[in-house]
Every structure is written in structure tokens, then in C-alpha cells.
Design a protein around this nucleic acid. Structure first.
Lengths: 276, 276
DNA sequence: AATGACCGTTGCATATCTTGCAACGGCGTC
DNA sequence: GACGCCGTTGCAAGATATGCAACGGTCATT
């Protein structure tokens, strides 16, 4: 809606591919060099792009800082983190936390496995949306027409033989996840890795986030992993309760029923917070 | 230099403080609501801001993705990472990697301590520039006038009694670091935490990054930590050599076979990730 | 239930701000 | 030494962003 800003912002994904010089940027934007120069200057002043020694432009430092602050403002994350760590310390496997936003599912927290086998995933990375357990959980909560709309638009890459092949299969899977209240990814993304996940719900029952536990076959089989499902679900439920306004329980005593905050229109508690 | 873009980008740090509605954004920008609306729309289309259920705006998902891609395009990081992991596996302490950019020092990689004691730091977070070992190393490499210019502009927060108190003291410290080729932070940021660091140099001898090892007093004393200095310096030197174009030594260095090609414009290896 | 206030949204006319052009200067190459 | 390449700047023309005023919806108040 604003041409100038639109062009300026288009530079960012372009630079994400790698450093580029003025001419390249101008060409790919389809504008005159002088125009590109001025846009880059403005981005530079805001720290979003950085000019390296060879005069080429790269994405800048403030981008990290912004992303960092953004992720820290997500209150689900704040609340969930200690629970995730506790679960990780109990079972040792990798724990992920993810949210759905604007047709994308992305990890917002992760606790690394204690086992030497490392997985590659990163906070901020978009998730393989058609197969990941957390993605299924988050999408399953959408309304039926929404689910269908999303499912139609997706690609269905065949990561493995067990990847979700197409939209109908995906929708069936979402239906199943919706009913049972938990999800799995058994080798759907990487042949040797299984995940189980559970939803985290807000006071109104809507799914606000999803968590999962992942482990490679070489550590535990899928069946063994599934025996941990109750643990995962309990953790997710505990997070849900706390997120919905319940007082954090002191220990692992599932404990006291605290009156859920009934206020439908949550008083605008400014979620202002300061990082030490 | 471009007013429109300037205004649009000013919204981002504003939203980083927390969600805000249209009126607030317009006020703080000093523009009409309709103008703010159009700017926000453009930002929204690019995924940089997200509109949550209560209609307020937040920083968006693409911001993470961009920061992520950006950090992965840093070739120093690519090269250093396996070395950092190896060092961490040997000694168990937390390892950081940082670069200097535009008057800021920021972490671009981190390998967590194996010990239960966690430290507070995050990739992307600006470093406590006046006390951190990595900051000293990076600034020490600047020319004398540059160092002075930077040192004058800085604030010198007294995190602890051992924090660098002022510019002259900082410049002396930088001089010392410059001569000895390594740096420490002994309780300058957190009373109970010590760090030792070493510089990573490019082919031309300039410092391109710095790494450090951190450990709390309760795990090892400062003296014990200092006995690990040779290990840190060797690791840093190994990274420097590889970054300068040398073939990775086959010894304990990770098995990443690459022809001795110094080309820095290496296409980043598509990072495999695993879905929960 | 009706009213009023608030907030986000839209169409439009004005004028501000951006754009492309052409020319300059630095730099490495032929 | 001259040429070509790339980043940079001043300027005029015109496209584009801006503020205004009005609309419509939602929520709180009476």
C-alpha cells in the first residue's frame, strides 16, 4: 500500500540470500540505482542492513536484536519455558515450542536433547508444516473452512515415504489430531526421527501454542516414545492452566484448582517487561 | 533519507517494546492515524508485523526468519561452530562467538554449558560492551583513534565492583588485550561469572570475530579457568586458519572436507532440520 | 434498549516527497 | 594514460504519501 516502504522492505529478503551490491539490488527491485541507494541508506540508518568492507550490503545487527525482543515478548514462551526445561531434564529428549502465525508455524523455543545426537532446528525457523506434530496441532484448531483453505495452498514435499502426501490426507490427519487431542510425526520428516506433541490452550480453549518431544530411533523406538505421551500431555496441560491465569503450582503436584480467571475481556494488563 | 521508510522502520523498535494499537503507534510516530495504518499495512504484508486477535500489532514472524537466514550467512559462524562444539564437549563450559558491527558487539553463536548452571545470554543480544571479554578483543583491534572515539561514546554501567569504570580504564584495558592477544572478564558483568576469550583473525590479520569460554565461580575458580586459556587460544587459532583458507586439519577438527578454496562466498549449506 | 464515545477504516485533494536522469569523481583495468 | 565501472549528488517533474473529514462498527454507559 505504500510503494516506497514496499520497495525498501523487499530488499530484506533479497539480502537474506546473501550479500549484494548496489547494482544488484537496484536491478532486482527494478528501480534506478540512486533510488536503491537511498532506500539502502534508510535501512542502514535503522541498522537493518550493514555495509561490509567490500561495500556490499548485508542484513544488519538490529534485525537480531528485534527478533530477540520480539520472541521475548511472547508470554506463552515465558510461561512455558520452565516447564519445557523440567520435562527435558526428566526425559532428556529435545523439546520444541511452536506457534501459528500468518500461515506459518514457527518454533519459538527449544530445549536441546541431552543425548549426543543433535537435531537441526532453530528458533525462528519455519516448520515443515505438513508433517510436524506441532504444525498438525496448531492447524487442527482452525475452523474447518480455514483448515481447508490452508491445506489447499500448501506444498506437500515428500521428505520421506511417510510424509503427508497431499491435502486430503493432511485434512484427515488434522481431523484425527483434533479428536484425539495430541499428534505425532513418525518419520514423516526425517526417516529416523519421531515426535509426539500436545496442544497448549488459552482460557477460551483455543490452541495458542503446541509443544513436542522428539527423539531419533537410535535412542528410543516410536513405541517407547509413545509411552511418554502422558507426560507430554500433562506438561502441556500445566502450561495451559498457567497461561490461562492459574497460579503456578509449586511442585509437580498437579494440585489445587484455582478459579480460572473468568474475565472474558481480559483487562489490558500491559505486558511490559524488562530484561535484566 | 527517505521519510516514509524512515517512519515505517521506526515502528519496529516501537513494537519491540510490546504490542501497541493503531492510536499509540500514530501518536509515537507523530503522524495521522491513517498514515500509521498504511505504514503498518505495508509492514504487515511483508510479515514484519503481526496483528493479534485483539487487533493490536506485534512484531511478526518473518523477522525471525530473516534474522535466522542472516546469521546463517555469516561464514565465520559456519566455520567456527564445529570447533566451538568440540571445545564445549571437551571442557563443558559455555562458549560464545561474537562479532563487532556498527558500534555494537553481538553474539552470533553460543554453545550451552553442560553444567546445570545457566547463564543469561542470547544469540542476537547486544553484549555488555565495556566488560565482556569478546567485546574487548573486538574493540582492541580497532585503530587507536577509533578505539578512543568508541570509548568516549560508551556508557560504563557498574554491573559489579569490578566492572570497567570509565573510558580511560577501558582504553588501558584494550591496550593490554591488544598486546597479550587474549582477554578476560573476571566478574565484571556478573559477580560470580568469569570469562576468558581469544580473537579470530582473517587472512589479513584483522580480528573478524572473538570467542570466549564462561564459567561461574561455583564450578571453577578464575585460576582454574585460566588454565584452560591455551585450549581456547588454540581453538581460536584453528578457526582463524580455516577461515583464512587453510584446509581443516584432519586431527580433531570436524570432518568437513572442503577443497582448499578461500572463496568466502560459499553457498551456505542448506541446513537440515527436524520436525517434532 | 438506546445513546454516545472510541477506534479502525476509506476517498479525496493537496502538496510533499520520491523518483529517474544526467553528470561527477574515485578506482581498477585494459 | 584512457576507458569503463560503480557509487554518489543536485535537480526538476511528477507520482505518491499525507492529513482531513466522514463512515461504520464495537463496546461501555445511562
Amino acid at each position: 500500500m505504500s510503494q516506497t516502504v514496499d520497495r525498501a522492505l523487499s530488499i530484506l529478503p533479497l539480502l537474506a540470500e546473501g550479500p549484494a551490491d548496489l547494482g544488484q539490488v537496484a536491478d532486482r527491485l527494478g528501480v534506478h540505482k540512486s533510488t536503491a541507494l537511498r532506500l539502502l541508506r534508510t535501512l542502514h540508518e535503522h541498522g537493518l542492513v550493514y555495509r561490509q568492507a567490500d561495500q556490499r550490503y548485508r542484513l544488519g545487527a538490529r534485525l537480531f536484536a528485534l527478533a530477540q525482543e520480539a520472541v521475548e515478548n511472547l508470554d506463552v514462551r515465558e510461561i512455558a519455558h520452565p516447564h519445557l526445561v523440567a520435562l527435558n531434564e526428566k526425559v532428556g529428549h529435545t523439546i520444541h515450542l511452536a506457534v501459528y502465525e500468518e500461515n506459518e508455524v514457527l518454533y519459538i523455543d527449544k530445549v536441546e536433547s541431552r543425548y549426543p545426537v543433535r537435531m537441526y532446528s532453530r528458533i525462528g525457523k519455519p516448520v515443515a508444516i505438513t508433517v510436524a506434530a506441532v504444525a498438525k496441532l496448531l492447524l487442527a484448531d482452525l475452523s474447518e473452512p480455514e483448515r481447508r483453505a490452508v491445506a489447499e495452498k500448501l506444498d506437500y514435499p515428500a521428505y520421506t515415504a511417510r510424509s503427508t502426501p497431499n491435502a486430503p490426507a493432511f485434512l484427515r490427519e488434522l481431523e484425527k489430531v483434533r479428536e484425539q487431542g495430541w499428534a505425532t510425526d513418525l518419520g514423516g520428516h526425517e526417516e529416523s526421527i519421531n515426535c509426539i506433541g500436545a496442544p497448549i490452550r488459552g482460557a477460551d480453549g483455543r490452541v495458542v501454542a503446541a509443544m513436542s518431544m522428539s527423539a531419533p530411533n537410535v535412542v528410543v523406538t516410536a513405541e517407547e516414545l509413545l509411552t511418554l505421551l502422558p507426560l507430554v500431555r500433562r506438561t502441556a496441560d500445566a502450561i495451559s492452566r498457567e497461561y490461562s491465569g492459574a497460579v503456578p503450582v509449586s511442585k509437580e503436584t498437579p494440585a489445587k484448582e484455582t478459579p480460572a480467571k473468568a474475565a472474558p475481556s481480559t483487562p489490558s494488563t500491559p505486558s511490559k517487561e524488562v530484561t535484566p
